[in-house]
Write a protein that binds this DNA or RNA. Structure first.
Length: 859
DNA sequence: ACCGGGAGCGC
DNA sequence: AGGCGCTCCCGGT
């Protein structure tokens, strides 16, 4: 160090590991002049917090772990992972427990040295790839703080310096920071739980209730550009204008006077203006080096502007001001609400619908497929919303195609991207289980397969079939032990040191961490613990205390290491396949399929080889309701129940003769009448009613061609009913509540404060009724019953009329049997058609009542 | 059935 | 060593 005298010390995890390690080794081995790791001669080596005590003062300390956490979004920030994702390098890891053994052989030692060199190089590349030094330098120049502090990612401090400089320049007196004692006193009075996250001190962003479902038409994403910074400008929010000093606890201050521009808005405005300028320079710049540097500059400006709000709500900040933070979020909520309302006030055909929104964005379902039209709608909404604002700007950020909206902050979609006139779709997944590290790869793989199927644009039935096949196959592979151990790894982070947990025994990752400590490994807060759940291995004689989940968690390395061994006796750790299916695969898979009407949790469970009846509970309310409804219909054996069946739901069959000969008038009577038009023409079955028709009013099902034609007509006629049912739209049964939403399994009304239940707008019993209607058209026995009934009625009417009117016509000239007058073989053809509808009913059976025994399809 | 701790997302 | 909002799992009561 003395010879090289570097300006920068670099390492991955420098602050929490390397500096301390260096000093520890220096003191252990008695190396002289320890303070040469810095540039100031010091005598006493600090025992703790060497960086804060200035042990390395005079040099910049660049910690790629710290910087990566601020600059890029990753699932985990180990050097191995960053090398993989950022540099596409596979880094070799060495188990620290192997170190002593390696150090004993020269070959092992060389390997260790080689490894250390490679790690240094990776860290170097990472620093350059992330542009850590130029970016932090920009931040430092902007805010006027120390560079080394920017490298430590202290946003609050950066912010503090920026404001200090600004207020000082304008001759303001700045607030003194609290002293240690004052902080202690404040904390003591308000009490605080040292452990987990604090309760929120004020309300934040508004999240609109999502209209859950699957959207096949285009969806617009409109969002406010830099919402909080532009709110500060728009409403002139400043320490000098918001009357935070005359407020009670939890009061939201009134909107400040907007006619002047105060300090904070001008600082923000300055930052945003400079960013716009840099961005426009970037647009025309061709030199790649300059482009990189300009891009870094615009990023830094954005970072500073965006972090202002967060620091206002930060209790330890010098410029902490809760009322201002609360006012900003309140205005943000208002802005989002007005954007939603204005979007919904537009008059488009079909009407657009705001299906979701979070803090600064609204998602608008256009109901159309035309990209250009959708974009136009987006820009029109944008214009309406932006009209009253001076600074705030709603932008059309993206257009989505095929969107699965599951819950607040959880959705998946394809983003429509136009590149060189071509349209490309790019997957975007937010918040779903499959983007979280605490689900095993197996579970995430399944999730991705499901999304591939659902968002591929193929028909829903096909997608669902693929999903069922995949799950069935997955189950097969799992039972056959064909899945790699690595797929079962679950990773969870420690937020505390393992020994600090009060409920350690209930948490798998804490249990594993404690086990690691026992084995002499370093484990501390912030570490990610990879583990696998194995089968309870208590032999029976021992007390079975290790049946709890936490006790069945084992560190990955143990499972992997044992699989290398050959002796079967030593393979005592068995992955708990059953647990993975029921806890890691089924729940996320079922959640993804919630809006998909073509399947159900029971069916998904069945594919995975589970007892579907056990998963009825999750859907109990909806399913049982449907079963009851359908049963009521079944119990009603009223032969006349379709006599007043709505005209629009009836099957419109036409006589092929009239049609072909052009003998049809506009008159509806030329249509084939179905049997239920009793009042018109008696209870005959399907005859042409055109008196002049060449068919001679013979029966509709004259030959085999007719059968094929009718079957097709039924298919075509039935499709929209099935589709309506598939959409599974629900509405609240509370007459005061007009909530409508798409299907999900909960029957509670999603509207806040409403206690109503959701009922299907098109229920399974309605669908069932439709099928029953088709069936009745071809049921000769039922027709006979109806004829008999009708005859009795007419006879009675005749008797009554006879008493009062001697000239009454008899009018009971009905055939005795519906089979009368039918051409030869018709009866058989009716049977064929009847069976056809019956089949249709059975194949749709499972859609009606999730796996109930109503249709006994389990065979 | 309800509650709180813990984790990890979204914005 | 910025903020709050929102699931989701688990165990305890």
């Amino acid at each position: 160090l003395q010879a090289i005298d570097p300006d920068v010390l670099l390492a991955h995890n420098l602050h929490r590991f390397h500096i301390e390690l260096l000093l520890q080794r220096i003191s252990a081995t008695g190396v002289k002049h320890w303070s040469r790791i810095g540039r100031l001669r010091k005598t006493k080596m600090p025992t703790s917090h060497p960086v804060d005590r200035g042990a390395a003062c005079g040099r910049l300390l660049c910690d790629t772990w710290v910087s990566a956490k601020e600059l890029v979004h990753e699932k985990t920030y180990t050097l191995t992972e960053l090398a993989r994702t950022r540099l596409s390098i596979t880094r070799q890891e060495i188990d620290p427990r192997q170190t002593p053994a390696k150090m004993r052989t020269s070959l092992g030692l060389l390997e260790m040295i080689d490894n250390a060199c490679k790690d240094s190089w990776i860290t170097f590349e990472l620093m350059f790839t992330l542009a850590i030094l130029p970016l932090t330098r920009q931040l430092t120049e902007l805010c006027g703080n120390l560079w080394i502090r920017s490298l430590q990612s202290r946003r609050a401090e950066r912010n503090e310096y920026l404001l200090l400089h600004e207020f000082h320049k304008k001759k303001f007196i700045v607030p003194e920071p609290y002293t240690k004692r004052e902080k202690m006193r404040l904390k003591g009075s308000t009490e605080s739980s040292s452990s987990s996250r604090k309760k929120a001190q004020y309300s934040g962003g508004l999240v609109l209730e999502p209209k859950k479902g699957f959207y096949e038409k285009l969806v617009l994403l409109l969002d406010y550009a830099s919402l909080y910074p532009s709110l500060i400008q728009e409403y002139n929010i400043c320490f000098t204008t918001v009357k935070h000093w005359e407020l009670g606890e939890d009061e939201i201050p009134p909107e400040p006077n907007r006619n002047t521009e105060s300090v904070l808005p001008s600082v923000i405005g300055h930052l945003l203006k400079r960013r716009r300028a840099v961005k426009s320079l970037l647009k025309d710049e061709r030199n790649p080096d300059l482009r990189t540097s300009l891009d870094i500059r615009q990023k830094a400006l954005k970072l500073v502007a965006n972090s202002m709000y967060g620091c206002l709500g930060f209790e330890n900040s010098r410029f902490y001001c809760k009322p201002m933070a609360a006012l900003i979020t309140a205005l943000g909520r208002k802005s989002l609400t007005t954007a939603k309302e204005k979007a919904e006030m537009t008059l488009y055909d079909p009407p657009v619908e705001v299906i979701y929104g979070d803090t600064d964005s609204i998602m608008v379902h256009t109901g159309i497929d035309d990209l250009a039209k959708a974009r136009k709608i987006g820009h029109e909404i944008r214009k309406i919303v932006n009209k009253p604002f001076r600074f705030m700007e709603l932008e059309l950020d993206a257009i989505y195609k095929d969107m699965l909206l599951l819950r607040k902050k959880k959705y998946a979609t394809n983003v429509v991207i136009e590149r060189d006139g071509k349209v490309i779709l790019e997957r975007e997944v937010k918040g779903l289980d499959l983007v979280r590290r605490d689900w095993c790869t197996l579970s995430k793989d399944a999730g991705n397969v499901l999304l591939d199927a659902l968002l591929s644009g193929q028909p829903r039935e096909e997608a669902v079939a693929k999903i069922h096949d995949y799950l069935t196959d997955l189950k097969k592979k799992l039972t056959a032990n064909e899945i790699a151990t690595g797929k079962f790894i679950i990773t969870k982070g420690l937020t505390k040191d393992p020994k600090a947990y009060t409920d350690a025994k209930t948490q798998p990752h804490v249990q594993v961490a404690l086990q690691m400590l026992k084995e002499g490994l370093f484990v501390r807060s912030g570490e990610h613990i990879p583990y696998i759940i194995v089968i309870n291995r208590s032999g029976g004689t021992e007390a079975s205390s290790d049946t709890s989940l936490a006790a069945r968690a084992v560190h990955v390395s143990k499972v992997l290491r044992q699989s290398e061994k050959t002796t079967p006796k030593e393979k005592f750790l068995h992955i708990d396949i059953e647990w993975y299916i029921t806890h890691q695969i089924l729940p996320p898979v079922a959640r993804l399929c919630e809006p998909i009407a073509e399947t159900s949790p029971g069916q998904l469970a069945e594919c995975l080889g589970l007892d579907p009846s056990k998963f009825h509970r999750t859907v109990a309310a909806t399913a049982s309701e449907d079963i009851d409804e359908a049963n009521i219909e079944l119990d009603r054996k009223d032969p006349e129940r379709f006599s007043d069946y709505p005209r629009e739901d009836r099957l419109p069959l036409r006589c092929r003769h009239c049609q072909l000969r052009g003998e049809n008038d506009e008159n509806e009577t030329r249509k084939w009448k179905d049997i239920f038009n009793l009042e018109v023409d008696g209870a005959y079955m399907v005859r042409c009613h055109n008196q002049n028709c060449r068919c001679g009013n013979i029966d509709l099902v004259g030959d085999n061609d007719d059968i094929a034609r009718i079957m097709n007509s039924i298919r075509v006629h039935f499709r929209p009913y099935l589709q309506r049912f598939y959409r599974r739209e629900l509405q609240c049964d509370d007459p005061m509540c007009h909530t409508r939403t798409r299907a999900h399994w909960s029957t509670k009304c999603p509207t806040l404060g409403c206690q109503g239940n959701l009922v299907p707008m098109y229920s399974s019993s309605a669908l069932y009724q439709q099928l029953s209607y088709y069936k009745s058209l071809f049921n000769l026995d039922e027709a006979e019953k109806r004829l008999n009934l009708e005859r009795t009625k007419r006879e009675e009417a005749y008797q009554i009329r006879l008493k009062s009117d001697s000239k009454a016509m008899k009018g009971i000239d009905l055939p005795l049997n519906p089979r009368d007058g039918l051409p030869k073989g018709s009866e058989k053809r009716f049977e064929l058609l009847y069976n056809f509808v019956d089949d249709l009913m059975h194949t749709s059976g499972h859609h009606f009542v999730n796996l109930s025994n109503l249709f006994a399809f389990s065979q």
